[in-house]
Structures are given as C-alpha cells and as structure tokens.
C-alpha cells in the first residue's frame, strides 16, 4: 500500500512542484508553438536564406539531447555573462527544443493544405504573410491537431528535465522529498500521479478538440 502520509506531510512541496511544472509547460507550450510556427514558415517561404535558417534550426536542435540544450541556458550562456535562474533556463531550453518538433508538425500541416488555397489568397492581392496567417495556417493547425497533441504531452513530460538543474518542478521536489525521507517508491509514484493529472486531461482535451473541429469542416 502507498504511504499517503508522505503526500500529506509534503503536500506544499508537491503543490509547488506541480505549479511550477504546470507553469513551465504552459510557457514552453506557447513559446514553442510560436517559434515552431515561424520556423515552419521559414522552411517553406519562397526565400532561400529563410529556408536555410529554418532547416538548420530544426536539424540542429532536434538532433541534440534536451538536457544539453537546457545546459546551454543554464551554464553556457552564463559563461558569457547572460544569466537565468534555473527555472527560466530550463523553460527556455524546453521551449527551444520542443519548437523544432512543432516546426516539423506544422510544416507537414502547411504542405497538406491544397495548393489552390495559397493561389486563391495570393491572387486576391494578399501578401504571402497575410495568406499564411489568414488562410493557410488556420487550416494547417487543424490538420495537425493529433500529432500536435503528442508534442504537447511530450513537452509536459520533458519538463522533468528541470529537476536536473534544480528548476523547482515536480521532479526536483520529488528528489528532494525522497532524499529527506529516504522513501523512494512511494514518493515517485505520487510524482507520476501529478504528471498524469496534467497529461491525461491534455490528452482528452486534444481528442475533444479534434472531434469538434472534425464536425465543423
């Protein structure tokens, strides 16, 4: 049986960790969605140098372990005088890393929108960016909701990387509680449950969104 006294006695720590994991996830979700969208458009826009920037971003970032990208913000940039607290460094690393995957998802979505949509939009006098923003991206995002949901769930779980750099998230407090109480199994089971508290509603939410949008088409 699980030892619930651990949960009750360390409730504040669990809550603080949960709140920070939630906060890091939401910030990284918004940030990576924005950067990912920009990089996806870079890869597709009819301007060569932008294509290179987009491709370089995706290929470099997604082929490096997340923890190393977090280290760039945690120890790399401070070495040249740019400092962050560990929560910020972790969240930035997570954002930059996830953006590479989201860029690929959105790019696939953009390519799945029929070519005639861009032609119709451009021939009405809209600029490339206007056509992207008003016509292509809304359709692309709709198409990629299922894979996007996967990325967001990964993001929440990957936020546990903050634990490694004392980022005050769930994982960090789990480690802390464990080392204070010398209990391992039960402590981490509760940590896992808190992650599920975030990821399962996210999963269900994505599913519901998918069904709703499927109806509206």
């Amino acid at each position: 049986m699980l030892d619930y006294s651990i949960l009750i006695e360390h409730w504040d720590m669990y809550m603080q960790g949960f709140a920070n994991t939630l906060k890091a996830s939401v910030l990284a979700l918004i940030g990576s969605f924005a950067i990912g969208t920009v990089m996806a458009v870079f890869r597709i826009a009819p301007i060569r140098p932008l294509n290179w920037i987009g491709a370089a971003y995706v290929e470099f970032i997604r082929n490096i372990p997340l923890i190393l990208i977090v280290f760039v913000f945690f120890v790399g940039l401070p070495a040249i005088g740019i400092r962050f607290d560990s929560f910020t460094a972790g969240t930035l690393g997570l954002t930059v890393y996830t953006a590479a995957f989201i860029a690929e998802v959105i790019r696939a979505g953009i390519l799945a929108v029929p070519k005639g949509q861009m032609e119709a939009a451009r021939s009405s006098g809209l600029t490339y960016l206007q056509a992207m923003w008003y016509v292509i991206l809304p359709q692309a995002v709709k198409i990629v909701i299922p894979p996007m949901g996967n990325q967001f769930i990964n993001l929440v779980k990957n936020s546990s990387v903050l634990g490694v750099i004392a980022g005050l998230d769930l994982m960090y407090f789990g480690d802390l509680i464990s080392s204070e109480t010398f209990v391992t199994f039960d402590v981490y089971i509760f940590v896992a449950l808190f992650y599920l508290l975030l990821t399962i509603p996210l999963s269900l939410g994505v599913g519901a969104l998918e069904r709703r949008l499927a109806k509206s088409r």
């Binding site: 005639g116 949509q117 119709a120 009405s124 006098g125 359709q139 088409r217």
Partner: peptide
C-alpha cells in the same frame, strides 16, 4: 500585390477557404 487587386481570378476547383463562411470568404481581401 497591387496589380493583383485589379485582377479577379476564378479557379476550376473554386478554392474557397473552407474554414471561413461565405461572407468571410468574400470580405477577407
């Protein structure tokens, strides 16, 4: 873009924007 304002185009496959209503399709540009 300026030239295209003066040239309307109708396509074989209509290319209406599926995520917008008829009215929104027409008012966008």
């Amino acid at each position: 873009n300026k030239l295209r304002r003066n040239i309307g185009m109708v396509f074989q496959h209509f290319n209406l924007y599926p995520h917008k209503t008829v009215l929104q399709n027409i008012t966008l540009a």
